[in-house]
Amino acid sequence: MSDVFAELVGQDEAVETLRRAAAAADGMLAGASAGTGMTHAWIFTGPPGSGRSVAARAFAAALQCVRGIGCGECAGCHTTLAGTHADVRFVVPEGLSISVNEMRALVLRAASAPSGGRWQVLVISDADRLTEAAGNALLKAIEEPPPRTVFLLCTPSTHPDDISVTIRSRCRLVPLRQAPAEAVAAMLVERDGIAPEVANWAAAAAQGHVSRARQLARDPEARKRREAVLAVPRRLTGVGACFDAASALIEAAEAEAEASVVETDAAERAALQTALGAGGTGRGAAGAIRGAAGQIKDLERRQKSRATRAQRDALDRALVDLAGFYRDVLTASLGAPVAPVHTDTAAQATAAAGKWSPEATLRRLEAVLDCRTAIDTNVKPRIAVEAMMLALWRG
Score class of each variant (00 low, 15 high):
residue 215 Q to R: 10
residue 236 L to H: 07
residue 292 A to I: 08
residue 245 A to G: 06
residue 232 V to W: 03
residue 293 A to R: 07
residue 271 A to D: 13
residue 227 E to Q: 15
residue 225 R to Q: 13
residue 258 E to G: 12
residue 218 R to T: 07
residue 288 A to M: 09
residue 304 K to P: 06
residue 213 A to C: 00
residue 251 E to F: 12
residue 274 T to H: 09
residue 248 A to W: 09
residue 284 G to D: 04
residue 255 A to L: 08
residue 233 P to V: 08
residue 293 A to T: 03
residue 300 E to F: 03
residue 277 G to K: 00
residue 276 L to H: 01
residue 294 G to Q: 13
residue 237 T to L: 11
residue 220 P to M: 06
residue 306 R to I: 01
residue 275 A to V: 04
residue 269 R to F: 05
residue 213 A to Q: 00
residue 218 R to A: 12
residue 281 T to H: 00
residue 282 G to M: 00
residue 267 A to F: 11
residue 252 A to D: 08
residue 211 S to I: 05
residue 281 T to Y: 00
residue 232 V to A: 04
residue 232 V to K: 02
residue 247 S to P: 02
residue 236 L to A: 08
residue 292 A to Q: 03
residue 265 D to F: 11
residue 267 A to V: 11
residue 280 G to P: 00
residue 221 E to A: 10
residue 287 G to F: 01
residue 222 A to S: 07
residue 297 K to D: 13
residue 289 I to H: 00
residue 239 V to G: 15
residue 252 A to F: 05
residue 264 T to I: 12
residue 245 A to N: 09
residue 289 I to D: 01
residue 268 E to L: 15
residue 245 A to P: 05
residue 274 T to V: 04
residue 291 G to Y: 08
residue 217 A to V: 00
residue 220 P to I: 04
residue 274 T to W: 03
residue 280 G to W: 00
residue 242 C to I: 14
residue 300 E to Q: 09
residue 273 Q to F: 06
residue 222 A to R: 09
residue 285 A to Y: 03
residue 297 K to A: 15
residue 247 S to M: 13
residue 257 A to S: 12
residue 252 A to N: 03
residue 275 A to C: 08
residue 299 L to R: 02
residue 257 A to R: 08
residue 246 A to L: 14
residue 256 E to L: 15
residue 265 D to V: 06
residue 278 A to K: 03
residue 232 V to G: 06
residue 271 A to M: 09
residue 251 E to M: 11
residue 302 R to F: 01
residue 276 L to V: 02
residue 224 K to V: 04
residue 239 V to E: 15
residue 218 R to E: 10
residue 303 Q to S: 05
residue 229 V to C: 04
residue 230 L to Y: 09
residue 228 A to E: 10
residue 256 E to P: 14
residue 276 L to A: 02
residue 304 K to Q: 13
residue 279 G to T: 04
residue 218 R to L: 09
residue 268 E to H: 15
residue 306 R to E: 03
residue 248 A to Y: 10
residue 261 V to K: 12
residue 228 A to C: 07
residue 249 L to I: 09
residue 220 P to W: 04
residue 215 Q to C: 05
residue 268 E to M: 15
residue 288 A to I: 06
residue 233 P to D: 08
residue 275 A to H: 08
residue 238 G to M: 14
residue 247 S to G: 12
residue 250 I to C: 06
residue 297 K to I: 10
residue 261 V to G: 12
residue 261 V to R: 13
residue 249 L to E: 06
residue 253 A to F: 09
residue 245 A to H: 10
residue 213 A to W: 00
residue 220 P to H: 05
residue 218 R to C: 02
residue 238 G to I: 14
residue 253 A to E: 06
residue 273 Q to N: 12
residue 214 R to C: 01
residue 247 S to Y: 09
residue 290 R to M: 00
residue 242 C to G: 14
residue 222 A to F: 07
residue 295 Q to W: 07
residue 277 G to Y: 01
residue 214 R to D: 00
